[in-house]
Design a protein around this nucleic acid. Structure first.
Lengths: 193, 193
DNA sequence: GCTCAATGTTTACGACGTTAACTTAAGCGC
DNA sequence: GCGCTTAAGTTAACGTCGTAAACATTGAGC
């Protein structure tokens, strides 16, 4: 796509960003949910080994995709809940957004769930890794909905809600459950924190 | 045409079975959740291309592992629920077994969830593919617990239960939720069909 | 204008999945 | 027993991959 942009220049403008975006594109268009480092480089108009100036290895590029994915997921959830004054409604909207994000970005979402832990550990914790932002949003919702509950009780609620939407998302992605918007509503709305 | 799985040992003994078992071993011992076809062959004491006498390609071997995995999962769930006369207790035991199976076979479970659909389509539907056996068990449980419910209502309950345990399993495997037996109990026992 | 670090390139290595052509041996009719 | 057929296994080869090493080009700052 941008392999023939106005750059006869030796240096690429922002190769790191281009690699992330092109890897993302390859990830979603390929059916296997994988991509080749060399093809990302090819698509970015750069030699295969140029990638190593920005990422120590393929895993690091994967981790960058995961961080990017969690940023977008948290954005989507926040946008879905924004403007809803009813806390329960906001909570449900956020849950629905979680599942819809997965359906809209299947390969990225799968990558995120399989590498969330490693990416969270790798990410610079300084400015608050985006990997943990979605989780903090969930915690805030539960705290608002169950103000009197103990920490342990809240933890169980958090895990229940998270497991429900995450499981629903994964099952729909895998084709084991039909990706019905109405079914998402029915499952999510029935959850009582 | 009938199944020809039984021991039709020519040279090796039962290479097909050996390949499946060795692939399973490699899958669980490797941290990446993947294995190389050549290494499976090596481990089985056979040349790399001998694999192709039993599986058309690597995906077919993956599919065989998925079928094997669902057999074991259904067995574990049935064993956990066996002897429990209380239907609700049996249902919960079955759910707990689902999560514990995932924790005990992380790589296999991940493979199963990412390839369940493809494997179910590939499997011979004649004698009831094992891929669908676990699902049938779940349907039976829900039917017994909600005898008066409509098909649509049962579907929602099935999806809720499945999503809950599946999500819990995946989150625990990913390290996003601590793999606590007590937490599993708390989450599963709280589910009211 | 020279130097230097950052950012690219070329070349190379071993491993991988898979194809093609060849070899071995088990079971069967004679 | 004796060949035939054919399933089950072999070696050799191709193109791709991730990655390491050595070299080339650039832009920024003294």
């Amino acid at each position: 796509m941008n392999a023939d942009e106005p750059r006869a220049a030796y240096h690429h403008g922002d190769l790191r960003r281009a690699l992330v975006l092109n890897a993302l594109a390859l990830l979603e268009q390929g059916s296997a949910g994988e991509f080749s480092l060399r093809e990302v480089a090819r698509l970015s108009g750069v030699s295969a080994t140029a990638v190593y100036r920005h990422f120590p290895d393929k895993d690091a590029l994967y981790a960058a995709l995961v961080v990017e994915g969690y940023e977008r997921l948290a954005d989507a959830q926040q946008a879905a809940a924004a403007g809803l004054s009813d806390r329960r409604a906001a909570f449900r909207a956020s849950g629905r957004a979680y599942v819809h994000f997965a359906l809209a970005n299947p390969a990225l979402f799968r990558l995120m769930s399989s590498r969330a832990h490693a990416a969270a550990a790798t990410a610079d914790a300084a400015d608050g890794a985006p990997v943990n932002r979605a989780k903090r949003l969930l915690l805030d919702h539960v705290a608002a909905l169950r103000p009197g509950a103990s920490t342990a009780e809240r933890t169980v609620t958090v895990v229940q809600a998270w497991a429900l939407v995450h499981g629903l998302a994964v099952l729909m992605l895998g084709g084991q459950v039909p990706p019905d918007a109405a079914l998402i509503d029915a499952v999510v709305d029935d959850f009582r924190p």
